[in-house]
Nucleic acid binder design. Structure first.
Length: 350
DNA sequence: AAAACGGGGTC
DNA sequence: GACCCAGTTTT
């Protein structure tokens, strides 16, 4: 049979979408993950505040981990008013160990804006808040307000890349496909269905294709190697950093500085200087001068890996008139917890 | 368009 | 060790 006309069921056609949507939504209705931010009130509505907090937490953070912080944050700050009224430091303390601390700083900043001007109820309104980008605005507006906005996250990217066998999908391609596929009757459910599918079935390494409700439509599965989609993204090289830190006091009571800038900004830590050049001899001297300290003795060395840094920190004890403070009350990075642990103090976050 | 931004899970 | 995670902001 000559097939001169394009199939009425080509990927992207109305027929294709019409088959896909019920298949995925039916699967979702039966298998959706039960997550604390998915709870609804008597009217079947979600609390936008809890949806927002969860979405910020889940940026580049796995659900299992985000869940722990979500419980902690929403218990301590049950609504926008409570979050806005809290000191930033209290929010950072609740965020301690979760990483990407700009999220906590922006969460607090946005809470203050909302406490003053009210909470948005549209995609555009949410997008205007700090820390809320296209993904998060689409998620909140669809999940909490029923607005027809398609999310584009790592799950959606992977699922669509496989569904259409697009090895290197760019962001515009993913968003266009997600927009075209979105179920406008149940946009929030559709978005979560796609993400649940990506998290539970269409996983990065070894997708569970036999259990996938979209298997019969999946071009990557037809190709024989669905795990090959999408191609891995390029990674920037890890920077190797050597630094020196000074401990004035002990593991429980020490002199701390608040970090400024993008990296760990807002967190507290031991005074630190980066070693420059080959010898790196000046770092300790700069530290001693700056803190009016003397009699340094090496306590030891700790190393710490972050996504884009490999840090080795030499920790010295020294004497100074500067006051110590209770370390446990301040938000600290993992690196500083490791440095303090050199003294053998009980450090429960480790 | 690319880099910066944490920390942990997973294979 | 490589890759990934319900991304956003800055360069």
């Amino acid at each position: 049979m000559p097939d001169l006309n394009p199939s009425p069921d080509w990927p992207g056609s109305a027929d294709f979408s019409g088959r896909l949507r019920p298949a995925l939504l039916n699967w979702f209705d039966a298998h959706a993950r039960e997550l604390p931010w998915r709870l609804v009130d008597g009217g079947g509505q979600r609390d936008p505040y809890r949806v927002w907090v969860s979405e910020i937490l889940l940026q580049q953070t796995q659900v299992a981990r985000g869940r722990v912080y979500f419980e902690h944050l929403t218990e301590q700050f049950p609504d926008v008013r409570a979050l806005a009224a809290a000191p930033l430091e209290a929010v950072l303390k609740a965020w301690e160990g979760c990483g990407y601390y700009a999220r906590a700083r922006n969460l607090h900043k946005a809470a203050k804006i909302m406490a003053a001007t009210g909470m948005p109820d549209t995609y555009a309104g949410w997008l205007a808040l700090p820390g809320v980008g296209p993904y998060t605005a689409a998620a909140i507006s669809s999940l909490a307000y029923g607005e027809a906005r398609a999310v584009n996250d790592g799950n959606v990217r992977r699922v669509l890349s496989r569904l259409f066998a697009e090895v290197q999908p760019d962001e515009r391609w993913v968003q266009a496909r997600a927009d075209a596929l979105l179920d406008s009757q149940r946009p929030g459910d559709w978005n979560e269905a796609l993400m649940d599918l990506g998290a539970m079935i269409c996983t990065p390494r070894t997708p569970h294709c036999p259990a996938c409700p979209l298997a019969s439509s999946c071009a990557a599965l037809k190709s024989g190697d669905p795990a090959a989609y999408p191609a891995a993204k390029k990674r920037s090289p890890v920077k190797v950093v050597q630094a020196v830190a000074l401990l004035i006091g002990d593991a429980q009571t020490a002199y701390l500085e608040q970090r400024v800038g993008a990296l760990l900004g807002g967190l507290y830590g031991l005074p630190t200087e980066i070693k420059e050049g080959q010898a790196g001899e000046g770092a300790l001297d700069r530290l001693l001068t700056r803190l009016e300290a003397h009699s340094p003795r090496l306590l030891g060395s700790v190393s710490h890996s972050m996504t884009h840094r490999q840090i080795t920190l030499e920790v010295y004890a020294a004497e100074s008139a500067l006051p110590g403070e209770a370390v446990g009350k301040r938000p600290l990075s993992r690196l500083d917890h490791k440095a303090l642990a050199l003294l053998g103090g009980q450090d429960r976050l480790l």
